[in-house]
C-alpha cells in the first residue's frame, strides 16, 4: 500500500499560558492520502485549527510543537527550519483561511498576489505566469478573469474573494490544501457554490484536502473520512458514511443529534448537557465524561485509547456505542 501523503503521529502542540499549560493538540494521529478529503470536526476549543497551523509550522510562541511527527511525503516536516518550511508552505501545502476579508492583502491587486506565489515557487516567466493566473481564475469560476487581475480585493464580494483565495491555494500545484472553515463566513447559497468548487478542484488536480469545520453537515457532504476532535484529542475517526450513520463515540452521537434537521417532526432537540471543560484542569480520565450519558467509574480513572471498534471506525471510548441500524 502506498504511503499516505500526510501522516500525523501523536502530534502534541502545547501553549504555555499564564494560567498553565494548554495541551491544545494532545496526541493526535491521522493520515491523508492523495486525492482524498479528510474532515476535521469539533467544537471550538477542540484543537482543530491548531492542527492546521501545526502542519504548516505556523504555531507562534507561546505555542510550540511539543512532540510527535508530521510526515509529509515520507519526511518529518515538524522539525524543519523556517527557511525549509517556507518552501513547503505555498508550494507543497497551501492554506485557505476562514475569513476571505482578511486573508488577502488589501493594498495589492489580485494579479500581483497571485503572481507572487508563482514567482516564489515556479520558474515560469512573466507572460506564462500571467496566463496561468488567468486560467486559474477561470477555473474557480471568476468571469472576465483577465480584467479582474488588476482589481483590488475590496472590489470583490465575499464569495468571490474566497474563490480568489482558493485560486491562490491551487496555483502552485500544492499537493495538500488545508481549508480552515472555508465557508463559515459565507451565505448558504454561496457556501454551496464554494464547496462544489473545492470538491471539483480536488478531483481534477488529485490534491489532498484537510477540511477543518465545526459543521458536520458540510463534512458529510464533502469528506471521504472524518476525524472528530474533542479537547485536543481524537475521539473518533473513520469513513464519513459510517461515522454519520452509526457513530461509536457518544460525543459524535451527541453532535449529530444536536444538529437541527428539517425532517424532524419533534421540536425539542436532543442536546449535549454542559460545556466544554477547561483543558488546563482536565486531569486523568476521559475528557468527555462530564457531559456523557454513558459515563462509568472507569471513565474517570483511565483515559480511553483510540482503538478499532467496527468497520473503519476507531473510537477513544471505554464503552463505544453499538451500531444503531
Amino acid at each position: 500500500m502506498a504511503e499516505p501523503l500526510l501522516d500525523l503521529r501523536e502530534l502534541q502542540t502545547h501553549f504555555q499560558t499564564f494560567g498553565g499549560l494548554v495541551k491544545a493538540v494532545d496526541g493526535v494521529s491521522f493520515n491523508v492520502k492523495a486525492g482524498e478529503i479528510v474532515g476535521l470536526v469539533g467544537e471550538s476549543g477542540g484543537g482543530k485549527s491548531v492542527i492546521g497551523f501545526s502542519i504548516l509550522g505556523l504555531v507562534d510562541p507561546p505555542g510550540r510543537i511539543a512532540g510527535g511527527e508530521i510526515r509529509f511525503d515520507g519526511r518529518d516536516i515538524s522539525k524543519l527550519g523556517e527557511r525549509e518550511m517556507r518552501n513547503v508552505r505555498g508550494r507543497d501545502i497551501a492554506m485557505v483561511f476562514q475569513d476571505p476579508m482578511t486573508s488577502l492583502n488589501p493594498v495589492y491587486t489580485i494579479g500581483r498576489q497571485m503572481d507572487e506565489v508563482l514567482r516564489l515557487h515556479t520558474n515560469l516567466d512573466e507572460a506564462a505566469r500571467r496566463i496561468r493566473c488567468i486560467r486559474m481564475l477561470e477555473d474557480v469560476g471568476i468571469s472576465g478573469a483577465e480584467s479582474r487581475l488588476d482589481a483590488y480585493p475590496h472590489q470583490f464580494s465575499g464569495g468571490m474573494r474566497q474563490r480568489v483565495v482558493i485560486a491562490i491555494a491551487l496555483l502552485a500545484g500544492s499537493r495538500l490544501i488545508i481549508a480552515d472553515e472555508p465557508t463559515t463566513a459565507l451565505d448558504v447559497t454561496v457556501q454551496s457554490q464554494i464547496l462544489k468548487l473545492m470538491r471539483r478542484q480536488v478531483q481534477e488536480t488529485g490534491a489532498a484536502m484537510i477540511l477543518i469545520t465545526h459543521d458536520l453537515a458540510v463534512v458529510s457532504e464533502m469528506a471521504d473520512r472524518v476525524v472528530v476532535l474533542y479537547c485536543g484529542k481524537v475521539v473518533e475517526r473513520g469513513l464519513t458514511e459510517e461515522v454519520i450513520r452509526s457513530p461509536a463515540h457518544p460525543y459524535t452521537r451527541g453532535l449529530l443529534d444536536s444538529i437541527p434537521r428539517i425532517t424532524d417532526r419533534q421540536r425539542r432537540l436532543r442536546q449535549i448537557p454542559g460545556t466544554v471543560p477547561d483543558i488546563r484542569t482536565l486531569g486523568a480520565g476521559c475528557s468527555f465524561r462530564g457531559r456523557c450519558a454513558h459515563a462509568q467509574p472507569l471513565c474517570a480513572e483511565r483515559s480511553p485509547e483510540l482503538a478499532p471498534v467496527r468497520g473503519s471506525l476507531d473510537a477513544a471510548c471505554h464503552f463505544p456505542l453499538q451500531e444503531t441500524l
Binding site: S157, G158, S192, Q193
Partner: peptide
C-alpha cells in the same frame, strides 16, 4: 427553494438535486 436546497445536510437521502442558483446578492 434555493435556500432550502443549498443547505448542506447530514442525511444523504435528503440531498436533492439542487435548484442551482449562481452569483451573489
Amino acid at each position: 427553494q434555493a435556500l432550502l436546497s443549498a443547505a448542506p445536510n447530514v442525511d444523504k437521502a435528503l440531498r436533492k438535486p439542487q435548484a442551482e442558483i449562481t452569483g451573489e446578492v
